[in-house]
C-alpha cells in the first residue's frame, strides 16, 4: 500500500462517502424502484444468487493462514490490521480490523450497521437478513436463539459474545479449524471458510461434505 492510499483511507471520517460509480448505481436503482420497473427484493434475490462470486474474499485466505501458521495467528489476534497488511492485500477494510477467535469456551458473532464501509472485500457480500433491524436487536438480546434459527447449536457451556461493528472497528471471526483437515494446504482450507463462519452465524464447511 502506498502512502497516498493510506492517507486516502483515513480522510473524512466524519461523514460517509460514495464513489461516483456507486452514486450512479444508487441513483438508477432508486429511479427504477420509484417508477415500478424493479422490485428491490427481486434485485436482492438476483444478487444473492451470486453472493459467493463477488469480490476477492480475502477473509477466507486470512482464516486459512491463521489455521496453518501459529505465528500468523498470534499476529492476527494481536493486531489484525497489521497482520492482514503483511499478506499484501490491498483493501480499504484493513483499517481498525479486530480478529476474534472462536474456542470451545467462546463463540463470537458480529452485528453491523451496514454503513458504507461494510468489509465486503474480507467477508463477501452481507446476507440479506443481516440488513434487517430485527436481526440486529435480537442478536444482542437473544444470540442463542438467533444462532438456533441459523441451525447453529452450541454446547450450553459455550459463552456467546456479540460484537457490534462500528465505523471505527470491524470484526472478523476466526472460526475453529474443522476436524479431519490435518495436513491440508491453505488453499484447500480456504475453500471451507464460509462468509457466515466469519460473522459467527455459521461454521466452516466440513471436509467431504457437498459444497
Amino acid at each position: 500500500m502506498t502512502d497516498h492510499d493510506h492517507d486516502h483511507h483515513h480522510h473524512d471520517h466524519d461523514h460517509s462517502e460514495l464513489s461516483e460509480t456507486e452514486l450512479r448505481v444508487r441513483a438508477l436503482e432508486t429511479i427504477l424502484t420509484e417508477k415500478g420497473y424493479v422490485e428491490p427484493a427481486a434485485l436482492d434475490a438476483i444478487i444473492q444468487a451470486y453472493e459467493t462470486r463477488i469480490g476477492p474474499h480475502n477473509g477466507a485466505q486470512v482464516v486459512a493462514k491463521a489455521w496453518t501458521d501459529p505465528a500468523f495467528k498470534q499476529a492476527l489476534l494481536d493486531d489484525a490490521t497489521k497482520a492482514v497488511s503483511t499478506l499484501g492485500h490491498v483493501s480499504r477494510v484493513g483499517d481498525h480490523l479486530v480478529a476474534v477467535e472462536n474456542t470451545p469456551q467462546r463463540h463470537n458473532m458480529v452485528v453491523c450497521t451496514l454503513c458504507s464501509c461494510y468489509p465486503w472485500e474480507m467477508l463477501g457480500l452481507p446476507p440479506v437478513w443481516y440488513k434487517a433491524a430485527p436481526y440486529r436487536s435480537r442478536a444482542v438480546k437473544d444470540p442463542r436463539g438467533v444462532l438456533a434459527d441459523f441451525g447453529v447449536s452450541l454446547p450450553k457451556e459455550t459463552e456467546i459474545r456479540v460484537w457490534d461493528s462500528t465505523a471505527e472497528t470491524r470484526f472478523l471471526v476466526l472460526p475453529m479449524r474443522p476436524e479431519g483437515t490435518e495436513g491440508w494446504s491453505e488453499q484447500q482450507l480456504a475453500e471451507l471458510v464460509t462468509r457466515d463462519s466469519m460473522i459467527g452465524t455459521g461454521f466452516p464447511k466440513t471436509p467431504g461434505a457437498p459444497s
Binding site: 473524512d12 471520517h13 466524519d14 461523514h15 460517509s16 462517502e17 460514495l18 452514486l23 450512479r24 444508487r26 441513483a27 438508477l28 432508486t30 429511479i31 450497521t113 451496514l114 454503513c115 458504507s116 464501509c117 462500528t166 465505523a167 471505527e168
Partner: peptide, 25 residues
C-alpha cells in the same frame, strides 16, 4: 437530467450521514 438529479441527491445523503450509519435517501 433526472438521473443526474438523483445522483446529486445520493451524494448529498452521503455527505450528511455520519460515518458508520447506513445511508438513506
Amino acid at each position: 437530467d433526472t438521473q443526474h438529479r438523483y445522483r446529486e441527491a445520493w451524494d448529498h445523503a452521503a455527505d450528511r450521514t455520519p460515518h458508520g450509519q447506513p445511508i438513506e435517501l
